[in-house]
Design a protein around this nucleic acid. Sequence first.
RNA 1: GGCGCCAUCGUCUAGUGGUCUAGGACACUGCCCUCUCACGGCAGUAACCUGGGUUCAAAUCCCAGUGGCGCUGCCA
Length: 497
Amino acid sequence: MNKNIVTRFAPSPTGMMHVGSLRTALYSYLWARHNGGKFILRIEDTDRERFVPGAIEQIVRTLNWAGFDYDEGPVLTSDGKIQERGQNGPYIQSKRTAIYREYTKQLIDHGHAYRCFCTREDLEAMRTDQQQRGVPPMYDRRCLQLTEQQIKQKLDQKTPYVVRLKVPRDGYTVFKDVIRKRVQFENKLVDDQVLLKSDGFPTYHLAVVIDDHLMGVTDIIRGEEWLSSTPKHIFLYQAFRWPVPSYAHLPLLVDRERKKLSKRRGDVAVDDYIKKGYLKDAILNFIVLLGWNPKTAEEIFTLPELVKRFELAQVHKAAAVFDLEKLNWVNGKYLRTLPVPRVRELSEQYLCSLPGYQDYRANTKFIEKAIALEQSRIKKLSDLPEAIGFFFSEKLDYDPAQLVWRKSDRPKTILAMQKALDRLELFTEADFVQAKLEPALLAFAKEQGIDNGTMFWPLRFALSGKERSPSPFEIMGVLGKTQSLRRIQSGLNRLKK
RNA sequence: GGCGCCAUCGUCUAGUGGUCUAGGACACUGCCCUCUCACGGCAGUAACCUGGGUUCAAAUCCCAGUGGCGCUGCCA
């Protein structure tokens, strides 16, 4: 517990939020809350070309959906507008360009950075040449040779330029990563990173360091793809004489081919999973376990439990495969604990286009009874229409031959169905519930000397039209006497033909 | 190519020198329940990347190789 801990989630608004980003956000959130510290949301929109309108709103909405409340950062007002909240704003980097420019000037003045007037073509040619010579492609510092007059002249001519970090060429940069322990890079292999682009916007490397420092971030939790650029960030902290924060580089999330999760091979957006009917808690529970576990046999955790138990230092080093099978299992686990009315609410969007559903729409009792039967049989909400469709429409499409149980035959089945029908007629509509039907019919079959399979398979099939379904008693309890008898009679008629 | 990170069942992982004939979960298989499916219960198959060291003893420490991934952009 360290109340001084400050973490942040700093996504780029370039589209839908990725499940990998969700995990980074989750770990950052958990670590802050676990310590009783602060959690900040910052938007890194310094690449104007990749900016997607609406993406910031989307990020905020996803964070709200997940329940990651943050102490500072952009929030959504009731009318859907972005509003900044917190003492260290703005939290959207494109609004902070003046800050970056000022600090860049400081770096230049102190000799930690320099202007580079090379064009993209110059750089391209330089890289090609370096590659042909088999040397590491790095900026050759030609603009560092420029005299003060030359620089002044170019500035007067309004020659576009970038500002580069002057990386020390000696020694090593060593830092401790919470997850990876000691990491070391040889300084002479670190390129003179562009800090300020010619459009006046900072690159990630400059903005991230300045903002993390100004916003008081103590623990940087980010994806492993940033590990190799950490030395550049450390140089900057040193140049500014700022304390270097703690780093935790998270292992990547990969697909079953061990490739970075990609759109081509499956869903990567959090929204894709929400749309498929995966529950929030299940997604978070599944995702937190991809790279971390509390070292017990337990697998199901609520967010508050995670806050209590999460430890950054326990996070794994190796990349984790995003395995849908396990997500399905976790989701099923959560689905089964949900109250039926809640499942109905959440499923409304999936059910509304179901044939016959509109006739029952107001009859929530009926819908909920149907859902209760299928709740343990589906993996996700979007499976529900397929599962309960037969309750709403009596137009069941099946081959009458399927009414015959595998160990039975047609004549026996016709007889069993007829007898069942006669017995069922004796029930009042009020008594037509599973608790009364099941013992009575079971006893009836026994007394008639009819196999359970011979009698109940065809009943169930006639009622549901499916090989796999809840028991006939359960279905009849939902459908009621009239509808149930009609379906069984219809099945019998079709079998007799 | 260079640099870096990583490496336990198919997957997520426990394991920090002896308690490992390597534990749990998902998936898979079988059994129980049962008219079917699901749920639930029980059982089973299945892994320490390879090669060298260090040590009385290595999944655990060191080195090399191999493989995977990341970075190598005026993207983040």
